Computed example of a mutant assay.
Amino acid sequence: MATAVAVPVVIVLLVLIRVLGPGSSDDDAAADVSGATPTQRDESPVEVETPPITPEADAACPALMSQLPLELAGSTSRRVDSDSPYAHAWGDPAQVLICGADAPAGFVVGGPQLIQVNGVQWFVDTTDPTVNVWTAVDRTVPVEISVPASQDGSIPTLLSPVIAGAIPYAEPQPR
Rank of each mutant, 00 (worst) to 15 (best):
M1E: 06
T3E: 12
A4H: 04
V7E: 02
P8Q: 07
L14S: 15
L16F: 10
L16E: 15
I17H: 13
I17G: 10
V19Y: 05
V19S: 08
G21A: 10
P22D: 09
P22I: 13
G23L: 04
G23Y: 03
D27T: 12
A29F: 15
A31Q: 15
V33Y: 06
S34L: 10
G35H: 06
G35Q: 04
G35I: 05
A36C: 04
R41Q: 13
S44Q: 11
S44D: 07
P45F: 01
E47H: 11
V48L: 05
V48R: 15
E49K: 14
P51N: 09
I53E: 14
T54S: 14
P55K: 12
P55S: 14
E56H: 11
A59D: 12
A59F: 04
A60D: 12
P62A: 05
A63R: 12
S66F: 03
Q67L: 07
P69R: 00
L70G: 15
L70Q: 15
L72N: 02
G74S: 06
G74C: 04
G74D: 05
T76N: 08
R78K: 07
R79G: 14
V80T: 09
V80Q: 01
V80P: 02
D81G: 08
Y86A: 02
A89W: 00
W90R: 02
W90Q: 00
G91P: 02
P93A: 05
A94C: 04
V96M: 04
V96T: 12
I98Y: 00
I98R: 01
G100C: 06
G100A: 06
G100E: 03
A101C: 06
D102Y: 04
A103V: 02
A103G: 05
P104D: 00
A105R: 03
A105M: 08
G106Q: 05
G106A: 06
V108W: 02
V109Y: 07
V109S: 07
G110A: 04
P112N: 13
I115K: 09
Q116L: 07
N118A: 11
N118H: 11
V120W: 00
Q121V: 15
W122N: 03
W122I: 02
F123Q: 07
V124M: 06
D125H: 11
T127A: 14
D128P: 01
D128V: 11
D128H: 10
D128G: 08
D128C: 11
P129Y: 02
P129D: 08
T130D: 14
T135W: 10
A136T: 01
D138A: 07
T140L: 13
T140K: 15
T140F: 08
V141T: 03
P142Y: 01
E144T: 14
E144C: 03
V147K: 00
V147Q: 02
Q151F: 15
G153W: 03
S154Q: 15
S154I: 07
I155E: 06
P156Y: 06
P156Q: 13
L158K: 12
L158H: 08
L158E: 14
L159W: 14
L159P: 01
I163S: 04
A166N: 08
A166Y: 07
I167W: 06
E171I: 08
P174C: 08
P174F: 10
P174L: 09
